[in-house]
Nucleic acid binder design. Structure first.
Length: 339
DNA sequence: AACGCAATCAACCGCCACCGC
DNA sequence: TGCGGTGGCGGTTGATTGCGT
């Protein structure tokens, strides 16, 4: 027995929405709201659609302030940063991009961004597999033991590191060094997300819980307005992970002696993001687990670092310094606007 | 102009978590 | 506590559009 369908499939229209259906749905929701029940909505409105379909249509197209297409370079960078850090949590990524929907971002990533970033490497990988690689694809120690998402993210890590600093990439980079040219907000996003969510990643430093971590703001002063009642910023409260961070600006350390200042807008956004992430993680982490299980599973294969070393080395070496020198993680670099 | 292939994106599907009973 | 209904999410599909030959 399969589960009961959410609606009567036989009497439900599928496919593209007509302007009339759109108008009915939009008009109804603007007048009365959803009533907290999407399943019942189509009947009330008088359209033969599945409730889920109505929800999707509203969220992705009909609700106000939706943006379509025309992703900016900043949005590109944010999407990439977050994808690398947290994977395909499109709803979380979308939450950081006002007006964008998870579906839009997912499509954009799958059809464009991913190809921009991974296309060349995948080609190179294919060549390698076809020309004498000794790695058996069925071998459990190979790339195939990773989820696609994890592979992509690790590839992106390495590729971007290579672009920034081929020497570091060749020796197992510390992700705290990366990315070097994000804007300040993205930089903080990455730092907090990495600390919160990626500690099993062997590419990253793994500070113990008592270690003080300093986040360096690079040549910007956005953190110099940092405010924190205790002199520390609580980065998260997950047991066993980092729980306090001293933020050090380019020339100024935020301490209690700095006194109380109003938080900047950027810092408020930063904290809001952290709250979102914390909420997500605590939601996922059933009491004892400090990390999202899915995330952990993705990197289970790296528990045995010997098995992963070759992969890392290959990824690092695969990317030649010549190509790296012609790119950088800025608006004209990695993402290379090709229009 | 016609065809075939690739890219794009709207929409669907199925799974999972949450919530109320 | 278990179960069913619902919402939310990510993966996938398939129709449409664009482009090269």
């Amino acid at each position: 027995m399969g589960r009961a369908p959410c609606c009567d499939k036989a009497n439900v229209k599928k496919g593209p929405w007509s302007p009339e259906e759109d108008a009915k749905l939009k008009d109804y929701i603007e007048r009365y709201g959803t009533g907290g029940n999407w399943i019942a909505l189509p009947q009330k409105i008088g359209i033969k659609r599945c409730g889920k379909s109505c929800r999707l249509r509203w969220l992705n197209y009909l609700r106000p302030n939706i943006k379509h297409g025309g992703f900016s370079e900043e949005e590109d960078n944010i999407i990439c940063s977050l994808y690398i850090s947290i994977g395909s949590r499109w709803s979380i990524i979308a939450a950081q991009l006002p007006g964008r929907t998870d579906n839009d971002i997912k499509n954009y990533w799958n059809t464009r961004l991913k190809k921009k970033l991974l296309g060349r490497r995948k080609q190179s990988h294919a060549n390698r597999l076809g020309t004498g690689s000794t790695q058996d694809p069925k071998d459990g120690n190979g790339l195939e033991t990773l989820s696609n998402s994890a592979i992509e993210r690790l590839q992106l890590h390495m590729q971007l590191q290579s672009l920034e600093n081929p020497n570091i990439a060749n020796h197992g980079a510390n992700l705290a060094m990366w990315p070097c040219k994000l804007n300040p907000i993205q930089e903080k996003m990455m730092q907090s997300l990495q600390l919160l969510n990626e500690s099993p990643n062997p590419l990253m430093m793994q500070p113990d819980s008592s270690q003080k971590v300093e986040l360096y703001a690079q040549s910007n002063n956005c953190l110099q307005q940092a405010y924190s009642p205790s002199g520390n910023i609580m980065i998260n409260q997950v047991p066993g992970s980092i729980n306090a961070i001293n933020i050090v600006g380019s020339s100024m350390q935020v301490t209690e002696s700095e006194g109380i200042k109003q938080p900047s807008m950027e810092l408020q956004q930063f904290w809001a993001l952290q709250a979102d992430i914390d909420q997500f993680l605590s939601h996922k982490a059933a009491n004892s687990a400090s990390l999202d299980q899915t995330q952990t599973n993705e990197f289970d294969c790296f528990k045995d670092m010997d098995g992963a070393k070759d992969i890392m080395t290959w990824w690092s070496n695969e990317f030649d310094a010549n190509s790296a020198s012609s790119n950088s993680w800025d608006s004209n670099g990695v993402l290379g606007r090709d229009q």
